[in-house]
């Protein structure tokens, strides 16, 4: 799925006119990017998910007052950052946010958001590449274990793969991921801890 800049601008414009489908298209399009960024800021999947919903709910509420923005992704990243760190910001004040005020604090500038986006894209690409190194079976079990939150017994029930085999398959998959992502984990932990 690749949307051109013009498509995104069009979706943004339609969203400001109250078109919820346009908003949901933007939501879906940027979801994984925003989630990955949010997790690196706060270290928690739940908090990051909540932040995304809060930001979009605010945009929905204020859709009539939204102005065109030159870089939708950078703007959304800045909103997520403000939400996660509870920075004094339009989201809490119920006033429209414009692009300038989104980046308007001592720590963030538009340029810094662009850097954050670049890092985020790099990390996601690396994770996708690492996941691509896994076998189908490994991917399926990783999905069940980490996304569906099944324990080994449940995995056995669902897939017919024995507890022992499932454990070994996941263990081997993680060794692959860890090897692939070792450098990445190191650099992320720096970014992450610098915000704590």
């Amino acid at each position: 799925m690749k949307n051109s800049a013009a498509d995104i601008t069009g979706l943004w414009e339609n969203m400001t006119k109250g078109n919820s489908d346009a908003m949901l298209a933007l939501y879906e399009y940027y979801y994984n990017d925003l989630l990955s960024y949010g997790i690196r800021l706060c270290g928690s999947l739940h908090t990051a998910k909540d932040a995304i919903n809060d930001v979009f709910l605010h945009l929905a509420e204020q859709h009539k007052n939204l102005k065109p923005v030159k870089n939708v992704k950078a703007y959304l990243f800045a909103c997520i950052r403000r939400k996660v760190f509870c920075l004094p910001y339009a989201i809490d004040k119920m006033v429209p946010i414009d692009e300038a005020s989104a980046y308007d604090d001592a720590e963030t500038s538009y340029e810094e958001m662009l850097v954050a986006i670049q890092q985020s894209d790099d990390i996601r690409t690396k994770i996708q590449l690492a996941l691509a190194k896994l076998t189908e079976r490994q991917k399926e079990l990783i999905q069940l274990k980490y996304f569906q939150n099944l324990n080994y017994r449940q995995i056995e029930t669902v897939t017919g793969i024995s507890v022992k085999t499932a454990y070994n398959t996941i263990y081997n998959a993680l060794r692959v991921l860890e090897t692939e992502l070792r450098g990445l984990l190191f650099s992320i932990s720096l970014l992450f801890s610098s915000f704590l």
Binding site: E28, Y29, I39, I142, L177, F192
Partner: peptide
């Protein structure tokens, strides 16, 4: 924990999340 969170975020399906968000809206 970071690896876990990153994997979860990559495995999250935006289509499913947006359905929930539509409900919120």
């Amino acid at each position: 924990k970071q690896l876990y969170e990153l994997l979860c975020s990559e495995l999250t399906d935006p289509a499913v999340e947006s359905l929930t968000f539509r409900q919120l809206l």
